[in-house]
């Protein structure tokens, strides 16, 4: 599956877009605007935002497994500083992070 070449590669710092959406969308609200690190390129999938309306789901979207630090998502997170959350986010919801501070540290 990792043969797919996308805009991002494992180790890249990314930020989830924070746009509002009217229709079906799979980028969860709690991750919008959050910064994380790509841990895996999962493949090339039909676009859920189009499939939802029974369209062919094209163009396909590259899907990334993105790791977020729990403490950076939730201000009052209780747990270890290494605790992480991973979610699968399509390329059209990601931006290159300008603050690449997290880098590949979590990897």
């Amino acid at each position: 599956m990792s043969a797919v070449m996308g805009r991002y590669k494992p180790g890249d710092a990314v930020r989830v877009d924070d746009r509002a959406v009217a229709g079906h969308c799979r980028a969860p609200w709690y991750l919008r605007g959050q910064e994380g690190v790509v841990v895996e390129v999962l493949g090339n999938f039909r676009d859920p935002e189009r499939l939802a309306y029974l369209r062919p789901g094209l163009p396909r979207q590259i899907l990334y497994k993105v790791r977020f630090e729990q403490a950076s998502i939730w201000p009052n997170y209780i747990g270890a500083s290494s605790d992480a959350l991973e979610a699968d986010i399509t390329e059209n919801w990601l931006h290159a992070s300008d603050t690449a501070k997290r880098g590949a540290q979590a990897l």
């Binding site: 980028a27 270890a80 979610a87 986010i89």
Partner: peptide
């Protein structure tokens, strides 16, 4: 480390 996987896709 606790790692949570949210099956979003």
């Amino acid at each position: 480390t606790v790692r949570v996987h949210d099956s979003t896709a």
